[in-house]
Amino acid sequence: MSTTLEHTHEEHTHELAPHIRIGRARAGVLMLILSDTMSILAILAAGGYLNALNTENAFRASGDHAAGFVPGLLLAIALVVSGLGYYLWARTTRKNGGNGLPLFFILSLVFMLVALVGQTWVSLTLNRDYVSPYSAYESVITLISWFTAVHLLLAVIIGVLLLGRITRNRVKVVGLNYVPEVVGYWWFYTIIGSILLWLFSLVI
């Protein structure tokens, strides 16, 4: 390959150019979301397929039901509020050049935490009504429930880390304000994915 060596502005520092940093963060998170979406699709496909096959008419045991509707609805509302809080925080951050209103973020994180605790409680109490060995329906609901809980846990961990950055006034990375946007992708994805799985558990 024929090349020429010449000096460009980014060379001697060996630092990455701003647009590269931003593009890198966006691409990485979006691809993580793509891959995680495939696992959600796998769960949806598995539930739908087992339901359609209804092997030996045993997909549902008698009296099988979804996790309670009201707790699920409350958790969904908590998630929506969390998303709203995050959106407001990210917006103020963008407008004020990296210094958003931390209150919005704390609100968002608290509601995410509430959702995590609630989801864990829902998952744990599923065993009260379901008896082992669980029917395929109960298996799918259990998987959805714990899968959602793990996702919320991940979001909470990320939220705590981000809170650490906010308290140290480090929202900007080398003067660039892309962290709220990129973490937001994952935050909103978690919320949408969880609600989608919850809705699926209602219709299956």
Binding site: S35, D36, M38, S39, L41, A42, I43, A46, Y49, L50, L53, N54, T55, E56, N57, A58, F59, R60, A61, S132, P133, Y134, S135, A136, Y137, E138, S139, V140, T142, L143
Partner: peptide
């Protein structure tokens, strides 16, 4: 492609550890 493989093994582990029935025909798995 790999996430579905990952989920299939999560289901196998659940079947093995928690007695779920993703793949047990008698309880509606396949």
């Amino acid at each position: 492609a790999f996430p579905t493989f990952l989920m299939s093994q999560v289901m196998v582990l659940m079947d093995r550890v928690f007695q779920t029935s993703f793949f047990i025909a008698a309880y509606g798995g396949n």
